[in-house]
Write a protein that binds this DNA or RNA. Structure first.
Lengths: 215, 215
DNA sequence: TTATGTGAACCGGTTCACAGCT
DNA sequence: AGCTGTGAACCGGTTCACATAA
């Protein structure tokens, strides 16, 4: 019953990435001050985040890079292999299937499914697209926990209901819809329009509606 | 200097999407209670968010759907057309170029650029890929404010510096890196690994490391 | 002395309770 | 009466100050 905030978990994920980047540089140790700066947070914030889970550093010294990586991977559950089924073989589906950025973190896309007969049977990144109607069978075969929804907004809630019925326990949703799901399902939604609109909001104060011509 | 929180802006974007969905249904009015539920927030939260910008509802009645859509579009700066240049013509770049979800919100991808000679000259979604080295010229020609970074992590900071120098004022970053930028640049980062790891974190408490075989 | 770990203070976003229109 | 608008209370996440360990 840990009361760990979403913000803390999100930041752990970011620390992990920064740690891996420090490791790339061949360094064995790092200070909270540096790791925090690279993660764009305050050093106390970072130490507090870690303190919820244990004491991983050495006072006066800092943190061992490989040890802290190992600890955060453990916290995030990345010590085991996660199997994910990708629903939707459109352009976004292609991008996700071809994006191998989380394979080092033990998250694997093990199957791809779509409802469009024109797409079923095609191969994407070495994976043959199956019929999304067979969600339950695909889940059982791949032993997948996570469903990735890369489908149009209109199809998302329907599909979400289906993958829940098929036994998936986690959903990463890319459709611009707020999904209604049982509380037991772990859901994270990525909304591309939100990303762009955060930027336009900030820019609108700086840029006038009509671009003023250079004088 | 408005003191509007990021959370509020993010939610406005979500309200807008829900309002559009209500409009699809042919409805002219909506109550804060319903709109809030569809957005997965409390009704008071929604009304408070709107109250920072004005009074758009009618007491005892609710909100006019088209009027509120108009207001939120204005707040988010979506009353004008935003031009965005996409950097990176890999799989994610293809997905973004093919994703027309924000065109109704006046955000247009007007050019695509890459550093890979093998990609330059190819056409994606009707747009010819240009040389990323020409960022400044592309920006000037398209009158773009926003640079979309869909490049590998290793290339992101470098490219970010270049697009800032080229005169872009906003960046939507898809590379898993914390970019260091001048404070005047509007930045929003989308990190796919964070999305997946939020889900694995939640699931790890529920699922044991080794799947227990069915008895 | 240096840098981590953490209870306590602080602050800002969320929620409440109710005033204000229609 | 019904629903929005909003100052005030509340709560939780962030920051501070300092105790603790190397």
């Amino acid at each position: 019953m840990s009361r760990i905030s979403n913000s803390t978990v999100r930041r752990l994920s970011i620390y992990l990435r920064q740690l891996e980047s420090v490791r790339e540089e061949g360094r064995e140790n790092v200070l909270s001050a540096e790791l925090a700066e690279r993660s764009a947070v305050k050093a106390t914030q970072m130490r507090k985040d870690l303190s919820f889970f244990g004491s991983f550093g050495r006072r006066g010294i800092g943190y061992s890079v490989p040890a802290l990586i190992e600890q955060i991977r453990l916290i995030l559950g990345l010590d085991r292999v996660w199997s994910a089924v990708l629903f939707g073989a459109g352009s976004l589906g292609h991008a996700l299937a071809g994006y191998h950025g989380f394979e080092p973190h033990n998250i694997r896309i093990t199957a791809i499914a779509d409802v469009d007969p024109g797409r079923i049977g095609k191969t994407i990144s070495g994976i043959t697209v199956e019929n999304a109607a067979d969600a339950a069978a695909i889940r059982a075969r791949t032993n997948a926990q996570i469903a990735v929804l890369a489908v149009p907004a209109t199809a998302a809630q329907d599909l979400a209901d289906k993958v829940v019925a098929a036994g998936f326990s986690g959903i990463v949703n890319f459709a611009p819809v707020r999904l209604i799901l049982p509380a037991s399902i772990a859901l994270y939604s990525v909304d591309l329009a939100v990303a762009f609109e955060q930027v336009t909001y900030k820019l609108k104060d700086l840029k006038p509606p009509v671009p003023s011509p250079k004088s």
